[in-house]
Structures are given as C-alpha cells and as structure tokens.
Design a protein around this nucleic acid. Structure first.
Length: 605
DNA sequence: TTAGGGTTAG
C-alpha cells in the first residue's frame, strides 16, 4: 500500500509499503539526494513536492536534473505526460536523451502524432537522433499505419548509419508489417546479420498482418532449423493465430507441443491463443481441456471459450461458462456479449437470447452495438420471427449497417418470405451495392418463387455492375500440408484421380437416394450441366481428396471461406454415412460436425 | 553523470 506523503521544509517522508522513509533534506537534497527521492516517488503528489524542492534549491536549471524530472514524469505509470511537456518546454537546450524520453512517453500514452512532431522538432533543432530514437518513432508510425512517414524515417536510419542496429531493424520490420508492406519487412529481415527472437517474431507478425498463414509456418520452420534463437511464447502466439486461420489442428498441436517442451508454465495469453486455435480448428474438446486446466482465467479467456462453444452450436454450455464468468466476479464487456448472443443464435435459444440482450443493457449498462443487434436479428430471423427481427431493426437507436440487413435477407431466404426479403434487399443495396452474394440471394428467392422476370432483372443489374462472385474455396489438411480447392478446380496434378473419386461418390450417393439440389445453381444452363457444376463445388473436391489421402475411418477437417450451400450440406451428410467418416466443416459462420448421416447443426444454420 | 529499445490473446 502506498501511503500519504508529508514533505516539510527539512524532511521528506514517504510511506511506501508501510515502510517510512525519512531523509534529512538539508544534507542530501542538493547533491545526489534529489535523485534518490525522485526514484522513490509513487505518485504525482510526491513528484510535485520533489519538483518544488528542486526549484527551491535552485538546481532546476541543471540539465541533468531536468532530464531526470522529465523522464520520471513521462515514463512512470503514475506520471503525467502533460506535466512532462510543461517541464520539457522550459528546457533551454533539450538533448537527444530528452527527446527520446518525450517521444517514448508520447507513444506509451498513445499520442502518436505528437511523437512524430517531436521527432521533426528534434531534426529541425539540429539534434542528432540516435539508436534509441528510432524504435519509438517507428512504433508511432506502425500504430498510425503511417507507411509513407515510415519509409522516410527508414531513409533517415540509413543517413544516420544506424541500419545495422538490431533493435532499429526489428522496429523497421514491425513498422512495415503493421503497414501491410510485407515485402519491405522481408527485405530488412533478409539483410540482417544477426537475428534475435524479436526479429523472427516481427517477421512472422508481418506475415500474420497480411494473412499469409502458410508463410508464417514456413518461417517458424526456418527459425527452428537455424537453431540460434529459442522460440518464445510471443512468436508462437502469432503462429497459433496462423493455425486458427488455416484451420490446421495438426500444426496447432505441434506448436502446443513446442510450448510444453520449452516453457514450464504457460501464461494466460498463450493459453487463450491455444483455446482459440483449438476451437477454430474444430477441436472443441481440446480447447475445453486447456480452458479447464488454466490456473488464471480472464475476460479474454472466457470470451474465446464462449465464442468457441457458440460456433460449435453448444449454446447451453456457452451460457453456463458465461454464468461461471459472472460468478468469478469478472465484469462482462461488449465483446463477451457478442459471443453470448451469437451462442444463443447458433443454437436457436430465443428466450435466453432476449433475456441476455436485456440484462446486458439494464444490469450491466452496456449499450448495444451494431454487432449485438446483428446477433439479435440473426437469432430472431433464423427462428422464423421475421416480423420481430424487422421491428427490432426499426427500433434501433443506431443506424443499421449492411450486415444487419444481410442477416434479415438471409433469414427471409431460409423461411421463404419474399415480402420482408425485398425490404431487406432494398435497404441493403442502399448501403452496399457491390456484394455479389446479396444479389444472388435475392435472385435465388425469386427463382424459388418462380418469378423469372425478377431473376432476370437482378442478373442484369449484376452484369451492369460488372460484379464478380467471390471465389469460394475449401482447405483440407493431410500429412501436415494444407491443400486448397476452388470450384471446378483442375489445377492440381492429381485432378484425374480426384474426379474419378467424385464419380465414384456420385454413384454411391445415387444408390442411397440423394437427389442433387440444382436450385443452388443460378446459371441459365440445363439440368445436366447444373448437376455437373454442383458436384465439383470446392468442398466436394476437398472431401474426395481427403478420402483418397487419409486412412479408412480417420476424420476429415475442412475449412471454407464462404457459407456452405445446402447441397454441399446434404451431400456431406450422406458421405459421412456411406464412407463412415466424421467430417468437420468450418464455414464462414460456424462448425458443422457430420457423422452417420447427420449434422451437429441439426440443419439449423 | 542519468535511462532508454522489439513481440503477445477475445
């Protein structure tokens, strides 16, 4: 506990951790004693008293003393950047040390523009920046996403002859990475002599920023092969994020192994990343095991667990974990409520969702954001309560975005309500006219209602706008390698074998009574062509590849970038039964676990 | 004279 401070004319008394410190000011203050006192300050109150005495003793204009006052004020947790600025402004000749302190303090206090202005002021004042200046100036650029400024500063680094400093190089890699210029980051990295762990973390982080997940994993491999740097937690957190995005549990498990071998006690950040990786890779059980074993849980860990249970359709369990979080005394925030409401939505828990939406606002004082409304519209809409969903949108205090209207439109498609669907589409097209998927959903609804003129109108609009559909793809991992398939894909060398398998599967499916749902194909082609197109959707190609390259009975895991079409959903249910395989598919919204001809979503998705 | 540098989860 930090107690009160009483500073008299002759004594400085501070109660730190209940230990009184008493100094004879007359003996110690005017020499090095003031530095001692400065170091013992624990609050601005105490600092101001030391400052007052510095002024009283007339040592204020000693530059060494001023530098230390500024540094203490700008860099301690309890300090004040404004107060530091006021002392700094009184300095006649601030040196590079003072500028470095002020730049660092500004960055730590999220005052990034100010940090850059200080740097400019420093240059204009003819004060030469040193190797300590650049890491923080570059950090300001990364956090501002200021690539142009970063490039100029990179030029200054060369001019100053500091391009060989490992900290400056690491900062450059980070700056380029955060600004999305991965090639420039790579250039700095490749030219480095000795690389530190931070260099590897920074370059992997740079690839994470631009979602080059495979490259992240390759870099980790390179790092281990080089063997000079010990892999640290922070490096692996980045790689775990790559595994989550790739949906690659085997690689994720390897990383977990490396962590367990190298680090005796994992910290809460790493454990949270592990849970996130496992649940996003479809291994909910493993995620739960990590979660249960955690010695310390915070709001982040609860959020990943709740959202994880949500995307696997375990709404009731997600609500149970949420209750545990509240019992632990952790205050919920807006992000955890997004997880809670989406858990209700994925599992069709309408009453519970409505209840949570109310308690979020009235018990916990959290204003609903557009994401919360999105979850609620999704929850009501999926359940068929389309009028209620529409009423909720109309009652919103904030402007609904395209995601909200899209959610209503897709619910209208599922429940065949063209009237509200058209309202949703109209509003949606005001906000976003360039999403091909939206036009296709509307066209699909018209097609179901046999309104062919309207289908034609939507198609014409698509053509006029020159919109191209986002190419759907499916990823599958076998033997620790991730393979990517797009619809009608013939790019792989083995395409002949894969298409033979597709053909074989088609016969099996026909025998079991599967009828392809050609309404999913909105092309003006005959039925036969539609069936041909349908059977080569990326997910089916990935399944065929998986069946060829994995041993009998082993599970298949597929990750997709888009939502699954209903034909792929039915098809995969049949395949799980015919080939006796458990198939987990992660689409844009959630996980589907197919087993013995059924899906864990119970066809509610 | 002083102190100071990179990276990490929903």
């Amino acid at each position: 506990m930090t107690g009160t401070t009483v500073l008299s004319q002759t004594h400085f008394l501070s109660l730190t951790n209940n230990q009184p410190h008493c100094f004879e000011l007359s003996h110690s203050f005017n020499e090095k004693g003031w530095l001692c006192l400065l170091k013992r300050c624990n609050s601005m109150e105490e600092f101001k008293q030391v400052h007052a005495h510095v002024l009283k003793w007339g040592i204020f204009f000693d530059s060494f003393c001023m530098s230390n006052l500024v540094a203490t004020c700008a860099l301690t947790k309890w300090g004040s950047m404004d107060y530091a600025c006021s002392i700094f402004s009184q300095m006649d000749e601030p040196c590079s040390f003072d500028y470095n302190t002020m730049i660092r303090g500004s960055v730590n206090n999220m005052r990034f523009e100010e940090a850059l202005l200080l740097y400019v002021e420093m240059l204009e004042g003819g004060i030469e920046p040193d190797k300590f200046t650049y890491p923080f100036v570059l950090k300001a650029c990364s956090l501002l996403g200021a690539r142009n400024e970063g490039v100029q500063i990179h030029g200054h680094v060369f001019k100053m002859g500091l391009e060989g400093d490992v900290f400056v190089q690491n900062s450059l890699i980070n700056m380029y990475g955060k600004c999305g210029a991965v090639e420039c980051a790579r250039d700095v990295f490749d030219k480095m002599g000795e690389k530190s762990v931070a260099s590897w973390s920074a370059i992997i982080g740079a690839h994470v920023c631009v979602e080059m997940w495979n490259e992240c994993l390759m870099l980790l491999g390179e790092m281990s092969r080089e063997g000079r740097c010990r892999v640290e937690e922070s490096t692996l957190v980045n790689v775990l994020s790559a595994c989550s995005h790739l949906g690659s549990p085997n690689l994720g498990k390897c990383i977990h192994g490396i962590l367990l071998r190298n680090i005796s006690e994992l910290n809460v950040v790493v454990e949270t990343s592990l849970i996130d990786m496992y649940v996003k890779c479809g291994c909910l059980e493993k995620g739960l095991r990590v979660f249960e074993k955690m010695s310390e849980k915070n709001r982040y860990s609860y959020t990943v667990m709740i959202s994880g249970l949500a995307i696997h359709g375990h709404g009731k369990e997600a609500l149970k974990v949420f209750s545990e979080m509240l019992e632990e005394g952790l205050a919920p925030d807006d992000v955890v409520y997004v997880g809670v409401l989406s858990a209700c939505s994925h599992a069709g828990l309408v009453d519970e969702g409505l209840q949570c939406f109310k308690s979020m606002q009235f018990e916990h004082g959290i204003e609903p954001t557009v994401q919360h409304y999105g979850c609620m519209v999704d929850l009501l809409g999926r359940f068929g309560m389309l009028k209620e969903a529409y009423e909720l949108i109309k009652s919103m205090l904030i402007k609904p975005n395209d995601v909200i209207w899209r959610s209503l439109l897709s619910a209208c498609k599922v429940h065949h309500n063209l009237e509200i669907g058209e309202i949703a589409a109209r509003n949606l097209f005001v906000l976003n006219q360039n999403n091909t998927g939206d036009y296709l959903v509307l066209a699909n609804m018209y097609a179901k209602a046999q309104k062919w003129d309207d289908v034609a109108k939507v198609r014409t609009k698509l053509a006029e706008k020159n919109l191209v559909q986002t190419p759907g793809f499916s990823l599958i991992e076998t033997k620790r390698k991730v393979y990517k398939f797009v619809s009608q894909d013939k790019s792989t060398q083995q395409w002949n074998t894969i298409y033979d398998m597709i053909h074989q599967m088609e016969w099996q499916l026909k025998f079991e009574g599967h009828i392809p749902d050609t309404s999913q194909v909105l092309l003006d082609v005959d039925e036969e062509e539609k069936r041909e197109r349908l059977k080569c959707h990326s997910q089916k190609l990935a399944i065929a590849f998986g069946l060829i390259h994995t041993s009998e009975g082993s599970p298949l895991r597929i990750t997709r970038n888009l939502r699954m079409c209903s034909d792929c959903h039915t098809y995969t249910k049949y395949i799980s039964m015919i080939y006796e395989r458990e198939i987990t598919v992660r689409d844009r919204h959630r996980f589907h676990h197919f087993k013995d001809g059924t899906c864990s979503c119970k066809d509610y998705w």
